[in-house]
Design a protein around this nucleic acid. Structure first.
Lengths: 340, 340
DNA sequence: AGAGGAAAATGGAGCGCTCCAAAGAAACAA
DNA sequence: TTGTTTCTTTGGAGCGCTCCATTTTCCTCT
């Protein structure tokens, strides 16, 4: 077979290429390429020979070359910046579970890392290039840059990307679940500690809706600074202004921790003197110190559905964009109890 | 200038290439390449013309082509799997701060995502390819695969990669700091809750060393299952077996949370009845519920130093490998107080 | 045994860059 | 002016793959 007309040097110190594998297996480079891509219509004998040669030479395909030649990377880019809430771990796991079996990889980009450079995050991802993009930040759309591949906005982001699909947590439903749980337990004086961002706004809205439907007064306190993320001060204000409160719904588990701190400092025991419900079902919530009742947003499902949306859109680029809401569920632990 | 002998079609729907930029700017493709790489010796006029053309065409360089041609990606791979402790955020920030100004990117790979595939994490990274690798997991070395680029092990990992440099937190010193702090506050009956892994072992060792030096008894309880990460049960055992304990040193902040839960369930207030010190200075520690005294392991510095080690090693591939220890510092909050 | 069709294997062109040797332009000295 | 040196700019080759049109091989049926 030789080297297909190419003049090749001895294989020393050089990373092996498909040509090396091909001559080691006694086939053509094209056949090696077919085997690598798992293409059908390759005879078992040749396939085995190629796989054996790959092993022997410790051959590793060059993604750069494959990407360049195919003009496609089989990589999905995820724009991510909030590492405080661990929901992204679930999101990535969900994405990966759907995408990996289809040969897609996941690459994470952090917009805050692109602040210095003039190029936007999406530009950075497009340079890779990526075949599709998942937006999982609250970064304003204008800093993202133009997106010309299938895109999906994951979670509940205040972002409007034209043509992008949306896979969101149903934060409104989750907040209603939380509020209804407290009311069912006999609470009437319920406060809410909220933060900033799209998810927080929907949660506050769900809380208000249910309270008003029940003819109850919705007392809401907003954390002032993003510098102080745990809502401790907001909770102090809430408790001091409304001493008759018997329950608090915090917009997320981290803020619930702040509420617990404030309650402790005001001498209110949880759950005896004050019921507390969080949101996110983070590892924090299941700790034995809090045993926090919370809402599970099922972020892994968000990841799975986002991946499905992306795969579908790659097939149907011009279909109208779609929104899918993932239903959350109540997780009852020990931080809420019956009142009155 | 034309198209340098190439037959080009109209620029429609196609992503622009350096050839498009070149003809728009009236220069050769090589000159465009020089501008892109920020090479010296390009006249200001031409440079401006090229940059203008890049803007007008919204040109984005193809990383795949650049990588393939240069046989170098200017990307550093980070192997990461533990998202529970947020130290990795600091590590990445530190790496990025050193690497970005030198034109290097950071790519994260998760070994648990490679479980299904036959290829190892490192193989995956080498396929990218990456120019260097940071190992920041406890993944056994044999599952990593052969590494043939500069590598550094970051944090305190129980991993031995031949030829790799090590940038580690000085966990022994940190544990001594924590233990000495408790002793200085008058505590004599001190317990330690530990976990598994290299860092935990060193922390336990530091604790034992100081206790023995002071002629005190070192009471250590190990968490049993990785399923139950917060050390709640270990703390219960520790408290029940040693009712005279006045202070506990937890191997990390997450376990300190478990200890706090156990203390609460046994009716011991923190810090009045029991002083508690953690390790990691996670966001958890600064919460108002715990106000946890802890050890700051300065992971960002680990990232910075790991990046420096990598950059140095790329210049000096055959120098003997080196170990650098990052000194931790005590962060005093309200969970420890004077005893007796 | 030979024709015809399906299945399997192949060579060539080209993806968008980098790097290099060499050509061209500009600056300076004699 | 001309020669020499230095600074800019250029075309060509090639990186390691994919994809396609074509060729070769293998069956099946007459």
């Amino acid at each position: 077979m030789g080297h297909n007309g190419r003049v090749k040097q001895e294989l020393v110190g050089r990373r092996p290429t498909i040509y090396d594998v091909a001559s080691a297996a006694g086939v053509s480079k094209s056949l090696v390429s077919l085997v690598l891509r798992g293409a059908p219509g390759v005879s078992p004998a040749r396939r085995a020979a190629v796989e054996d040669a790959i092993q022997r030479l410790n051959y590793r395909p060059s993604r750069a070359a494959a990407t360049l030649a195919a003009n496609r990377s089989r990589t999905v880019g995820v724009v991510l910046d909030d590492y405080r809430n661990l929901w992204f771990v679930e999101l990535l796991a969900g994405l990966h579970r759907e995408l990996a079996p289809r040969g897609f990889r996941v690459a994470v980009a952090d917009p805050s890392f692109n602040m210095e450079t003039d190029r936007s995050v999406v530009d950075g991802l497009m340079s890779l290039p990526v075949d599709a993009i998942v937006i999982a930040t609250e970064t304003p759309e204008e800093t993202l840059g133009a997106i010309d591949v299938p895109a999906v906005v994951a979670g509940n982001r205040d972002i409007d990307i034209p043509g992008a699909d949306i896979v969101a947590n149903d934060d409104l439903a989750g907040a209603r679940l939380a509020t209804e749980h407290l009311i069912e337990q006999g609470h009437r004086e319920i406060g809410h500690v909220t933060g900033s961002g799209g998810a927080a706004r929907l949660r506050a809205q769900g809380f208000e809706e249910v309270m008003h439907e029940q003819g109850l007064r919705a007392r809401i306190e907003r954390q002032q600074l993003t510098m102080e993320p745990d809502g401790y001060n907001a909770a102090l204000r809430l408790l001091d202004r409304n001493p008759s409160l018997t329950a608090i719904f915090a917009a997320n588990d981290t803020m619930a921790l702040g509420v617990a701190g404030a309650a402790k400092d005001r001498g209110r025991r949880i759950p005896e003197d004050l019921s507390l419900i969080g949101y996110d079902n983070s590892p924090l919530a299941s700790s034995n110190l809090l045993r926090l009742t919370t809402i599970n947003d099922r972020s892994k499902t968000v990841g799975v559905e986002a991946a499905k949306a992306l795969l579908w859109r790659m097939e149907n680029p011009s279909a109208p964009s779609h929104t899918k809401l993932i239903q959350p569920e109540l997780v009852v632990r020990a931080s809420t109890q019956h009142h009155g």
